[in-house]
Structure formats: C-alpha cells, structure tokens
Design a binder for these strands. Sequence first.
DNA 1: CAGCTATTTAGCCAAATAGCTAATATAGAA
DNA 2: TTCTATATTAGCTATTTGGCTAAATAGCTG
Lengths: 103, 103
Amino acid sequence: MKTASRTFRALADPTRRQILQDLKEGELAAGEIAARFSISGPSISRHLSILKAADLVSERRAGNRILYRLEADRIAAALGDFLSTVCPTQFLHRRKAKKERAS
Amino acid sequence: MKTASRTFRALADPTRRQILQDLKEGELAAGEIAARFSISGPSISRHLSILKAADLVSERRAGNRILYRLEADRIAAALGDFLSTVCPTQFLHRRKAKKERAS
DNA sequence: CAGCTATTTAGCCAAATAGCTAATATAGAA
DNA sequence: TTCTATATTAGCTATTTGGCTAAATAGCTG
C-alpha cells in the first residue's frame, strides 16, 4: 500500500506534525503557518506540499493567499486502517460507519 | 515529542510494516522473518532494531535464536495518542463496556 | 576446545530528505 | 503596464536511510 508509506513518511517529521496541530484551530494561509516556525518559507511550502500529497491537508486559493485546512477525517481513516489490520484487537471502535451514506 | 518521530519513521517503511503484519500470528525468530523477504539478513536485522527502538516490537532470546513479538498495545497507544491530539473529534475513544452509552 | 548456527555490527554506496537562497509564478492594486 | 505581496519551484549542500558484503558476537553441540 503506497499511500501508507506516504502517510507515515509525512507524519514522521516534527515540523509537519506541528503544522497539523496548528491547523486544528482552522484554516491558515501558507505565510501564517511559516510565521510560526523559524525555518524559511520555501521549506514550509515544501512541507505543505508533502502533507497535501499525503492527503493530510487540503488547500484552496483565497485571492492572494493559499489557505490550508486539516483533513482530520483522512488522517483518522489512514491510521485507523493501519491499526485495524495490524492490531485489530486493540483497535476497538464504536463507530461502524464504514459507508459514508448520509445517515 | 521525540517518540512520535521514532514511531512514524519506523512505520514509514513498507518492509517494516510487513514485518509487523507477519508478527500478528505470533513470535518469529529473526531468521524466520528474514526468510519471508528477498532482502538480506543484515538488512532485516537493521529493520528489527528500528522497530525495537520505536517500541513497536520486543525481543527475547530463546537459546540460539532471538524471537520478536508484536507490541500491539504500544502501537495502538502511540497512534491513538497522536490521533487524540490532532483530530480528537475523529478519534473515538475506546470504551471498556457498552453500558457507557449516552454519557 | 573446535565447529556450527543464528544474528548483529561494521563499512561502504546510492538514493532520499530537509534545509537554505535565488528565481519564478500568481493575484490584486496603482 | 508596473509594483507589491504571497507562495511555489529550482538548484545546491549536508544528513539520513536502506541496501549490500564481510566480519564479529552469542549460544549450542560434539
């Protein structure tokens, strides 16, 4: 499963995990994210592209800026899929909403 | 959180994830694990040491051989911790009993 | 002890990663 | 158009990673 490698590699970097945490509050522009770190804007841009390639965040243009949003459902689904195959006993979930049919 | 980096980096490699899956069945010796892959024994040994450093597996010596065991609880705890901080809404806390509904 | 098996450790090399600065889009305003 | 602000892409370097073979370690057996 190639997506699993992309997901875990994306999560392996502390800067990228911090970006995800920052996005918990809501959408942020690339520059706003970069301002929270002491590393350069281009480096943050690269981190964002890795997170987006892994589907952990999504982006949308808002005029001049590009806003990033946390894709919490996808993160939870990716890790949940892995957990359910590697340690199904420990992965006890209450929700059985496998289908996304509007309930 | 340094352990998170170790955990995700360990999980980022497909060979290491496959080792974890193989260990679902039970303990395996290093050689038995290596026999399942087309890469060299020393490379598998390195993968095992990375998994052990991340606490995703444990090892015990059995005479001549070294048996590895999946630390499923630890894996679930590590990923659960991350999920609970980054996407608490999507992270459905596991429950002890079903009588705790509607709480 | 020597010999045998199982496993890890030590080097080495190619590829990937993360950081930087400089250059290149892209959008809006003058 | 030109200017400015926002972001990404390009190119470079140092470090890390994952593979290999060869050598060393650990435990059994004769």
